[in-house]
Write a protein that binds this DNA or RNA. Sequence first.
DNA 1: GCAGGTATGGACGATTTGATCGATTTAAGT
DNA 2: ACTTAAATCGATCAAATCGTCCATACCTGC
Lengths: 301, 301
Amino acid sequence: MDQLLSPKQVAEAIGTSESSLKRWCDLGLLKTVKTAGGHRRISVHEALRFVREQNHAVVEPHLLSMPATTDRRARRIEGSAERLTEALLADNQQACHAIVFDLFLAGESISRIFDEVVAPAFRSIGEKWECHEAEVYQERCSCQIMLRLLHDLRSKQVPPNPNLVALGATIEGDQYDLPVTMAEIVLRSVDCDARLLGTSIPFDSLVKAVQAHSPELVWLSVSFIADEAGFMEGFQRLSTAASKTRTAIVVGGRALTSEIRTRLSYSAFCDTMRHLEEFGKTLRRQPDSTPKKARNTRKNA
Amino acid sequence: MDQLLSPKQVAEAIGTSESSLKRWCDLGLLKTVKTAGGHRRISVHEALRFVREQNHAVVEPHLLSMPATTDRRARRIEGSAERLTEALLADNQQACHAIVFDLFLAGESISRIFDEVVAPAFRSIGEKWECHEAEVYQERCSCQIMLRLLHDLRSKQVPPNPNLVALGATIEGDQYDLPVTMAEIVLRSVDCDARLLGTSIPFDSLVKAVQAHSPELVWLSVSFIADEAGFMEGFQRLSTAASKTRTAIVVGGRALTSEIRTRLSYSAFCDTMRHLEEFGKTLRRQPDSTPKKARNTRKNA
DNA sequence: GCAGGTATGGACGATTTGATCGATTTAAGT
DNA sequence: ACTTAAATCGATCAAATCGTCCATACCTGC
């Protein structure tokens, strides 16, 4: 609790400028400790006392409640996954928000944040769940928090180029919406107008969506396959329709084993969000000469 | 998001003079926080609350981080459901946002917007789907648009009182997340700290969540029952756990036929969001003397 | 039409805020 | 211990805000 904060940190937490906060320190409204070099340091205790005394607003409570995460370490990928796991299981939405947005604002690519922070965090929660260290409702609640976070992230992105349309979905019976939503955001980060149709969409309806929109790309996140034969058959119908509209098909998801993949026909298989991002970039660069359909051209082993 | 605005910024946003706005602040119509130097600061949430309460115009919505508004004639419940249906099927997210947020800014209660605009729109889409006038992917896409809209709406609400905790969920096998999300927003609109755990949560895990959080309220949205016997049994376990923590149980959803309801034990059944809102209000007014468990006390026929 | 009460919004000097600057200090990485 | 990028310092200054006053516009009852 006697963690020391810089004037800038306190200023951000209470929603004012660094200049004003420094002036208030010099006026004696906030007691400060000085470093050997003359920099001001304010204890969390003192910052909270000031907030109470002045009835001042607190815009970013997590900065005062979790000062350990406000230093520069917070802006690094390393360790973020573990901190996110903890924040998710603690139902601490603000902390989750802070972790991801700090990385985003620090310039980390969306795909890297997803691959190296979000995905590991949910893998970790899944493992804890299997070991009975976490409850089902905690996992579901974590998904809710993350979904809200993803939505906020999406709303902060620059509006994409409307000339490059992509449609995304999960297949019928697959309700896992986080991966497919992350894929949407990754594609939008490379200036692709990605539109998530939703989860659990039958292949026949996907075919109609492709025919109606003629997108440059369709991405499918396959976390669960209820009926393998039906999946193969439906995918073939989608593939046929996509070739007519010169639409690339990108697939991903843990349900696509290599055995299944060898029997599918798609433009790219993406293990990670980074692969998807790179595929999206190639699509953007050469929208006409893009390989529209190639048998089993996996981008990565 | 809950950033602070100066009186001048708010005045510009709602199209009035700085002088008047300062006077209204001093009259207590707008809650303000003060800087150490005595300058007024107004949160976006408070500004929106004022606009809704006073039915004030908003000439610069972007200053309050709101979507652009249409003309004032659009601020009516009548006809909004039809316009929303059309906008949803046309995949026009901006139009959907405009319709709902215009009503929100005009001071319509959240529950009324949901009951008389959103719900009818989705009923209408469901009917079109049954008549083969709309595709499955259109319905799913509409749900995505609405889910994003609901998230945005939620972020515009004033942060609720943390002393009145409510947990919400759908039961295992029920993946329909719109009603349960709307319920969360309705409860938050009556100053209840409603937290949506997620969809498809087994009763045993719900029991653990209740034991961990001891909420004043649990709401269940039941759109689909896979196993009726299992549902009855699980609900009984939840009911027992809830009585121990003095937690009220509110249920709703089209899967709860009157035949099923007669065999359940809950605090309230809500046909509409308005019923839920009213129940939330009673809970807030008398948090101690609230009837925690009564057999089949339907709030409405 | 007119008197009286009320709400609005512009103007004023005094005060506060927040952005900027080059110089200095901190702290992460090696 | 050393290097180096980032953060902070102190100081300055334009812009914003404060509280107050007041002219004007609007409403209401007569």
